[in-house]
Simulated assay, not measured.
Amino acid sequence: MTALRIALVGCGDISAVHLDAIAAHGDAELVAVCDVERSRLTAASQRWDVTPYPGFESMLEAERPDVVHICTPHAQHAAMTTAALRRNVNVLVEKPVATSMADAQEVQRAAEGGSAIVGVCYQNRYNNTSQALRSLIDTGALGALRGGRASVDWFRDNSYYERRPWRGTWAEGGGGVLINQSIHTLDLLQWFLGEVVDVRGQASRLTLDDPVEVEDTASIVLRHRGGAGSIFQATNSYIDNAPVMIELLADRATVRLENDLTVTYTDGQTLFVAADGIATGEKAYWGLSHERLIDDFYRHVRRRRPFWIDPAAAMETLRIVTDVYAQSDLARRRPGRWPGASLDRVAR
């Protein structure tokens, strides 16, 4: 069987995780990389001995890959995903699927209008502790879920944004701590507790200085279908990168996910599931499960089956983020809707 032909666009930081996973996969062959920044493009093409392309559409046209990985700045995700789907190219796109609900819905319509498969990288759903907790929920072992809370307390100062200026702009980043760092934890919280039916929150820029535009702190109160309530807090203004914490309260147990998973049942029994790996440092928010997600996505492509973390699933979390931005004072400072850039101008 011929290996899947893989292309990747956006040769910045996160691409390294994707490229390593592609190289380690037995059913994938990287054939091309794309980036508008020549130094990054040259480095990636030489490192992986593949054809470099400065333009996204020209790469798709010339290579006709089976799968394209989209690792560009956030605001370019939707247009590139849609362009690839309309060429019947399967897409694995980094989070977020888009920076607005309107653009995400356009991606969904493109997916529904063709046969190509699209997946969104919420890789922390593949963590062994996340999978164990989801299994306990699905089997009813915890009883009814009553509520939960989650926190992300990390450190990102202006120098982080200076290294990649797009991160600090509404036009290209789409936001700050909510849509960039803590969206993975927010995704897990709503995946565990269920569909969110009410969102109330505020996002603020408390410690970052100009020219950074985006928020560094957010606080949210959520109501889930079925009656459970949750709170979510995130900041990039802590002095360190503390472990992410998620706590759930259920009729039969209290659950705490903080790297490891601890379930304390009301009858005194305790279940402990150790994390099978802990990412550290500034890039800890990537986690260690990209390779698992990519492997599963490729299996879905081979079997021609829709991927379970599709645009519709990704929109559940994006809607929370955009609702908070709409409610925040910070939202008034955002420029008008970014018209988008040429698909041949990409960078990460």
Rank of each mutant, 00 (worst) to 15 (best):
N127K: 15
N127V: 09
N127T: 08
T129S: 09
T129E: 13
Q131M: 02
A132Q: 02
A132N: 08
L133D: 01
R134F: 11
R134I: 14
L136C: 00
L136V: 00
I137D: 03
D138W: 08
G140T: 02
G140Y: 05
G140Q: 02
A141M: 00
A144N: 00
L145W: 01
L145P: 04
L145M: 12
G148I: 04
G148L: 07
A150I: 10
V152D: 09
V152K: 06
D153C: 08
D153L: 04
F155K: 13
N158W: 10
S159C: 06
Y160E: 01
Y160T: 12
Y161L: 11
Y161V: 05
Y161H: 01
E162N: 03
R163H: 03
R163K: 08
R164P: 12
P165L: 08
P165V: 10
R167T: 14
R167Y: 10
G168E: 07
W170L: 12
W170E: 03
A171S: 11
A171N: 08
G174D: 00
G174Y: 01
G174E: 00
G175P: 07
L178T: 15
I179V: 15
I179Q: 13
I179T: 09
Q181K: 07
I183F: 01
I183G: 14
H184M: 06
H184V: 14
T185K: 02
L186I: 13
D187H: 12
D187Y: 13
D187C: 04
L189R: 09
L189G: 07
Q190F: 13
W191F: 15
F192T: 05
F192W: 09
L193D: 03
L193E: 01
L193Q: 14
E195A: 10
V196N: 11
V196M: 06
D198K: 04
D198Q: 06
V199E: 12
G201T: 09
G201V: 07
G201A: 11
Q202D: 07
R205H: 02
L206H: 09
T207W: 03
T207D: 14
D209V: 06
D209M: 11
D209K: 03
D210R: 15
P211K: 11
P211S: 10
V214L: 04
V214K: 02
D216G: 07
T217M: 05
A218F: 10
S219Q: 15
I220W: 04
V221R: 12
V221H: 05
L222G: 04
H224M: 04
H224P: 10
H224S: 04
H224R: 01
